[in-house]
Design a protein around this nucleic acid. Structure first.
Lengths: 157, 157
DNA sequence: GAACGATTACTCGGATATGAATTGTCCGAGTCTCCGTGG
DNA sequence: CCACGGAGACTCGGACAATTCATATCCGAGTAATCGTTC
């Protein structure tokens, strides 16, 4: 899985702690975790295309969350970065070469593809059931001082 | 996900239909679905290292299933090809740069990593619950003539 | 005829190229701010 | 003092390299069968 998923998730959380009042530039978000700024910008663009965050150009521009944190699921972010297509894609190799069914045979769904799809659905279901607000809550329980430190740092820079 | 997973799964199923009496070469298995023989060989090696199939060299050599089909799960094959490590790996970027906790702070597990791991666990659970014998049964229901055609083809070549 | 040994052919196994996708970088289009000017 | 206009600077957005990983290929080590030879 792409490295960008982790960056995007943390950045969304950071955006939430900063608050939706003001936009934050990709450079600032990147600096906070020492990430390559231009590349994080690329990931944020993907989030923007997916409608997870909004973006404004120009001075005082940047990114901000497009909707409340409890309406953004892990699935939203993963789909925005990784793309919507499934990880396992059936190439129907059973229909190639001597192993192929005789032409005209009604071909049912590949049992392998079905099973893999079902497993992936379970994964997606878990991701869709977990909102970023859940994550935020858990993170704040584990490190109560983190949000304040973050706000201070972003206010000073 | 790697293309090889699909190849490996189909090949295991084919091996099961042929039966464990005689070994089948990678070249024959590849020809049945018009796959690149040398590369399928590589995947079968991975299955061999994982103990899913056994291999013998020399004339009359080849691969065969190492254990009954109902003791091989989808997870076994996927892990053999893709590797055992998780798809989402936490780089702990939260501990880099200004966002890092002060040194000495007891760092709890990253909430994001936990949630992603939980989702991936659900995926693994589904894969581990499905044996290749289930798949075989379903495939035979959908295409009852396939096993016979396969056995005939492998007997003649 | 049977047993033995060298030869031979065939297989896996890993080292080696190739291609594509992810990762990383850069510059231009657009836009908001700020400052100077005029009423 | 206030409104307006233009220059300037800053940001996102997408086009452009570099590196890594998956894909594909090839050749050598090892092994079992085969054939020839000998008892």
């Amino acid at each position: 899985m792409s490295e960008g998923v982790e960056w995007a998730l943390h950045s969304c959380l950071n955006l939430a702690w900063i608050g939706p009042e003001r936009a934050v530039t990709a450079a600032r978000l990147a600096a906070y975790h020492e990430l390559p700024a231009a590349y994080l910008n690329k990931q944020l663009q993907a989030l923007s295309r997916a409608g997870v965050v909004g973006s404004v150009s120009g001075p005082k521009g940047g990114f901000r969350l497009a909707r409340p944190l409890d309406r953004i699921t892990l699935m939203d972010v993963v789909a925005a970065i990784e793309g919507p297509e499934e990880a396992f894609r059936c190439s129907e190799i059973r229909q190639q070469g001597p192993g192929a069914e005789p032409a005209g045979t009604p071909t049912a769904a590949c049992a392998i593809a079905e099973a893999m799809a079902k497993a992936e659905l379970a994964w997606r279901r878990e991701l869709a059931a977990r909102t970023l607000d859940d994550i935020r809550l858990q993170a704040e329980r584990q490190a109560p001082t983190a949000p304040d430190r973050l706000r201070r740092w972003f206010a000073n820079v």
